[in-house]
Structure formats: C-alpha cells, structure tokens
Amino acid sequence: MSASERIPAAGVTAVTPDSSALVELLTHGELTVRGRIREASNAVLLCTVTLDGDTAECVYKPVKGERPLWDFPDGTLAQREVAAYLVSEATGWGLVPVTVLRDGPYGEGMVQQWIDADADADAGAGDGAGGDGALLALVDGEEAGEGWRPVAFAEVGGGRTALLVHADDERLRRLAVLDAVINNGDRKGGHLLPGGDGRLYGIDHGVSFHVEDKLRTLLWGWAGEPLTEEAVAVLGSLSGQLAEGGPLATRLAELITPAELAAVRDRVAVLLGTGTHPEPSGQWPSIPWPPV
C-alpha cells in the first residue's frame, strides 16, 4: 500500500492512532467497503469503519481472499497479522498499525488501521543516494556511503549492477529486531510506511511465525552486529511476557500454533544469547522478491 493507492473516503475523522478507542472502533464498528487494492496478491479491501459517530479508514483482508501457500496452513494469514501487531505492541515500539481479527462483509478477516504514508519520505529504492527521508536506495560503486547500510548488489539493466542500501535509521533497526522475533518472510520496501507523524510502520505480516527459519528482509544492514542496549532490554521483557501463562503468550496462543509459539520463545532466547542481529541462514532466500 502507498499513498498513491489510496481511495479517498468522505467524512473520515481522525482517531488517536494508539488509543483504546481505535481498537474498539476497528473491532466493533460498521465496516463499509470503499474499494479494492488490486496490486495485492490476496484480497485487500479499503474500508471505512464507523462507531458512535467516529469514522476512520482501514484495511480489511478477509480470510476467504487469502491465496493458498505451500508452506503455510490455509486460512491463517489474518491471524498472523494480528499476532505481529501484538508482539509489536509488547515491545513498546508501536511498529505495526493497530490490527484486529473480526467478522466483516466477506467473513472473518484482519482489519488494520490505515496509514497515510508521508509523501516526502521515500520507502522505495531510488537512484543515487536517495533524497531526504529516503529509506532505501540504489547506489553506484561498492560503498554504501555515510548514513546508509549495504544489503546486496542488484541488476539494474544494461549489464549494470548497483548496491541496494537502506538508511542507517533507528526505526528500521527496531523493525529488523521485530522481524527476527516474528520470523517475517516478506519484509519488502513497499511494506515500509513512513507516517506523517515521523513514525515508521511495517505492514503485511501474513507470512510470519513459521517454525522454520523463513526470515527474508531488506534490512540486513546490521547483520552480525551487536544489538542495542534498548533492543536487549526489550527482548528481555518479551521473554517474560512469552513465558507460559504470560500476557503475550496467552493472546498469541489464540492465533498461532503451540509449536509456532515455542519457536517465538526460542528466537527471542537466541537473540538474547548471541546478543547480535541475525545473519542470513543460507538455507532460504534472504531477500524477498520483488524486493520493493
């Protein structure tokens, strides 16, 4: 999703992004479908949701519209998106828009707060060193340059290659930690939404929480480097919340399998044990396709 894909809806009023009122609105409000985002591989519907005079835009992904995948059980992507939101909230970083599981016009599905992407921030890979606020770029040569982290070399046509880089941005670094915890198999550039409030949001977490290592991301720039003190503290808190009977474990148990929940605990333990950002395993493509 991007700002250019937005279908305007009249009469929409702002709701505080992190308020319990937004959770209530998304969970119990009346959903009205405004259009479909056709670029998505699964059914993604842009809606308005209204409750007691409050209205907001949201995304609705019905389970019935999920395309079957060879490596994930059918009809589970919506639950995984909600699980990713719960883990994000447990970190305190607020990296995933408010997401709930509920019934809708086309049956049960994921409903998520709509984020108006900042038109002045570039989440896609551009030419050169990228403009102010850019998160991804393609640069000539073998050096990422100041303020950037190298990811991989990419063919750009005409027999040319360029270095794909991402910004050395603390928000991206937090997201890289979250992706490692949830085992995100699809962190593309188009799944990064810079908000107008300066926050960065990650979306599309349906292919997460697999028991096998499926981490595919563009955020490899810190691979093998020590985790920040903040990240270690957050992971320590997550470990407690994921313990048997812990608040996060209890909620995740309603959305993912016991084996998948155990795998989340194991990944947090490994991150705390190594104290470093993970590196590509070599057993699975490390970068999603298409990357942006």
Rank of each mutant, 00 (worst) to 15 (best):
W93P: 01
M1F: 12
E5V: 02
A152W: 12
P68K: 09
P105R: 03
V156I: 15
P105D: 09
E142L: 11
A262P: 00
Q113T: 08
G195Q: 01
I256M: 08
P288K: 14
E260D: 08
V156Y: 06
L175Q: 14
E260H: 01
D52R: 05
V232W: 00
G147I: 12
E57F: 01
V111H: 03
S281V: 09
L69C: 04
Q241C: 02
P97H: 11
T50R: 06
R160A: 15
G11M: 09
G92N: 12
V111Q: 06
A90Y: 10
G196F: 14
Y85L: 06
L271A: 01
L192N: 09
G157D: 15
S19Q: 07
L271Y: 03
L22E: 04
G92R: 12
D122E: 15
G190W: 14
A269S: 15
I115V: 15
W70Y: 10
V268R: 11
L215W: 08
F153K: 14
L219D: 07
L69I: 10
F72A: 04
A223L: 06
A21W: 02
R199K: 14
P73A: 14
L175T: 06
G157I: 13
R67L: 07
V33S: 05
D74R: 15
D74S: 12
W93C: 07
V111M: 07
W284R: 15
G282R: 15
P97S: 10
V63H: 02
N42A: 04
A154Q: 15
A223P: 01
R199V: 09
G65F: 00
D179V: 03
L46F: 00
S88I: 03
E57V: 08
P97Y: 15
A223I: 08
G190R: 13
E225R: 12
G11V: 02
L163T: 05
E5T: 11
D120L: 08
P288S: 08
E260P: 05
D103F: 01
E108R: 13
V156N: 02
I7E: 07
T91G: 00
P226Q: 13
G65M: 07
L193M: 13
T250I: 04
E66L: 02
D127M: 14
D122G: 00
R187H: 07
V165W: 04
E108G: 09
D132G: 06
W220G: 01
L101Q: 08
L51Q: 11
V49W: 01
G206F: 02
D266N: 06
A90E: 14
L178S: 06
R267F: 08
V63R: 03
L261P: 01
P97K: 10
A269N: 13
L219C: 05
P291S: 11
T91F: 11
D266L: 13
R80S: 02
Q113C: 03
R251A: 14
A83L: 05
